[in-house]
Write a protein that binds this DNA or RNA. Structure first.
Lengths: 219, 219
DNA sequence: GTAATAGTGTCTCTCAGACAGTATGTC
DNA sequence: GACATACTGTCTGAGAGACACTATTAC
């Protein structure tokens, strides 16, 4: 029988922290690079995991307590030299969560590092993060992805700020709202938000759709 | 030590055949589903493959003789029940080739089946193919991908027909050419092509660019 | 009233689709 | 000459960016 590579699942946990896109890192508890900060990850358990997505969910739940974030397969990094233990396969996922769901003690052990201040990380975790950030930026330009970085209710101003932070460019308020209403993946919620001395804003939530809203691109 | 899943690499070989997008299938030579048509694939060889991409290249070369096609990682299908041998991971790739590079005896053992006439296949190979076709269609709308389905020299009419066949819709000649010249990833080649009683067409080839030309999408 | 943010209306310029026109070959 | 396909020019309508305007709250 053929020799089999090590198979792991790693998760890039992305969130917005003080207006910056940040990644969740956790100190490694086991031996290669023990103690160093790295992406939350773990072995695939052929006896407990039904498939790779469930493995990713389990890893995330174990390390952060988060139950149902947006979670999507990112890429598979595989090779002879990315892990000192030998030939390894990392099926990597990325998750999007609002910072507010992370408050409790679950996330106590985690650090959140802005994506452009990440130094050297064990394995090829830096490239994995790069890939995740690129994927998020790409998809944000034509999908509702950034909504998952916000709590379930939000104002249009908050949503616009989120898009701007993710994509790194200013958007025009009027055009942004026009596009949103055409795309029609939001619905208004009764209720208000107030901050200071100004008019309150309408709250919105994502319309329940089985699929992620994706806008069209053209040739 | 943890039990490790089986790890394989499968390749979705796509080409255009008589105006239709078709997938290359080969009869399986080993036991699960021996003799049945399936995607070309094989075990990852930890002693011979440096990484997953090289494994995919090796598999494709061994089964079809093709050396340097467009080859990109597609998705990783992994789970307990997709393979009768047990928990398995398939790192899948998709390749684009012009039919003309396939003529020799290499491809003798292969069958090409139009993508919408594929019946039941072993494992989850049907879903893998669906995923590949969806990926190609998506990316074709905003990239130069379809070029890889043509020989290195082609006319603009051939290129337009290729885009149309891949995306399944008619394009306007004038708009198509305007877009191409703005995007500027083609260059004219001295030489002509002739067919019947009509004006000969200019031949073009892709400009050498390290990256795949990708057009922009907007929010 | 002022300040501050929420939300809308409108103008203009660009660009993609539609389609007609011209060019250059074979017969 | 006719015919077939290659290639180009122009008109028009939809949509995005820019920006100004109105609305509603706290003080």
């Amino acid at each position: 029988m053929e020799r089999r590579p090590i198979t792991t699942v790693d998760v890039v946990l992305l969130t917005l922290q003080t207006g910056q896109l940040a990644v969740g890192l956790a100190p490694r508890t086991t031996d290669p690079f023990k103690g160093r900060s790295a992406l939350p990850g773990g072995y695939l358990h052929v006896d407990r995991d039904q498939d790779a997505l469930q493995a990713a969910r389990r890893v995330l739940q174990e390390k952060t307590g988060i139950k149902a974030p947006y979670l999507e397969q990112l890429y598979t990094f595989a090779g002879a030299s990315r892990d000192p233990r030998g030939w390894s396969v990392s099926i990597s996922y990325y998750a999007l969560v609002p910072l507010s769901t992370l408050e409790p003690e679950n996330a106590a052990a985690m650090t959140f590092v802005p994506v452009d201040e990440i130094g050297q990380l064990p394995f090829d975790h830096s490239s994995i993060i790069d890939t995740a950030v690129r994927r998020l930026r790409d998809k944000s330009a034509y999908s509702a992805l950034p909504c998952y970085l916000l709590p379930s209710r939000f104002t249009l101003a908050e949503l616009q700020a989120t898009y701007e932070q993710v994509m790194g460019e200013k958007l025009d308020k009027s055009s942004f709202r026009r596009k949103l209403s055409e795309l029609d993946f939001l619905e208004a919620v009764r209720g208000e938000v107030r901050s200071g001395a100004h008019r309150p804003a309408q709250l919105y939530r994502m319309r329940k759709a089985k699929n992620l809203a994706v806008f069209d691109k053209t040739m």
